[in-house]
Amino acid sequence: METNFIYSLLGNNLLGYLAVCILPLVFLIVYALVAILGELKIGAFMQDRLGPMRTGPWGTIQPIAEVVKLLQKENITPDAASKFLFNLAPFIIFTAAFAAFAVIPFSPKFVPSGINLGLFYIFAIGSFAVIGIFMGGWASNNKYSLLGAVRSVAQIISYEIPAGMAILSIAALAGTLDMNEIITKQSGWFTNWYIFGGSGSALRILFLPFTFGIFVIYLIASLAETNRTPFDIPEGESEIVAGYHTEYSGMKFAMFFFAEYANMFVVSALLTIMFFGGWNSPFGDFMSGPIWAVVWFLGKSMSFIFLQIWLRWTLPRLRVDQLMYTGWKVLLPISFVCFFAIALLAMLK
């Protein structure tokens, strides 16, 4: 199956590879601008404010202004920092975030790399970000950065387990780790999505609480893994300035920023793929096809981005002990129960 229209366009050569690499990067930049604006505007609206209004009509080019501002800023490297690692960390974090885009199927005709381990790959590549955060926090030679890094890593490795259980459940349900295959298995009407138990007998209705539960668990765990509110303890401004990126400025800070937005998209895309049928149209054959697929996929992912922003402007930050309680004592046992139930469902099929 040809999963990449670019290869059929440009051929299987270096040019094709380059184009395949660059396309998600272009998308990422455009998306990040939209997401930044969304964050500013939605946050403002939820607080009955108007948000930025002076750059462009209704402040629509505000994100560009922000990026330009970040580019102009001085790139400070603290004297006492471990220079090489300090400068390396943002790149590692951004690379880790961007590497996940390699397996995200935007459309049946465009998957940058259609490996058969997509889900596992995304899960594994996240561990680079952990090291990057550690590197940034340690190399800054600043107690707040170090504390932020330690908190961040503790949080990410705690929430990786429930997230892993959620991914395992979907793997059990789909019988594959290939993203495109997972999506193809959910084709048809929206009742075939894995949040409703996938296609199969009507008996799957009984498992709705479990599939829905594992969805909520993955949603919460993914919020924690991307350090978004209410799990932004690693960058809790009121306690540790800005956590692991306290010392960063200018473009290096922008890399952290971009990485956060890239991660947001990756988890939203994963939620879409694993539970909401990816690029499938919700209405069977109606409005489906490679182009519509992109629309559906981005539409679904963007609604999850909206959900993340919505949650961010609703909930206050958790305390560290609450975070650990939620992770280990609530999400983990429930995810095990859900996993076993879903494994049963997979066996019944």
């Binding site: 490996i115 058969n116 381990l117 596992f120 790959y121 899960f123 594994a124 590549i125 996240g126 561990s127 680079f128 952990v130 090291i131 550690f134 340690w138 890593v153 490795i157 990786e160």
Partner: peptide, 20 residues
Amino acid sequence: DFVGITQIMVYVGGILVLII
């Protein structure tokens, strides 16, 4: 590729974090 990704998962995500 499975071994490769497992290598990252286990060594980078687990052991290296522990070491650091």
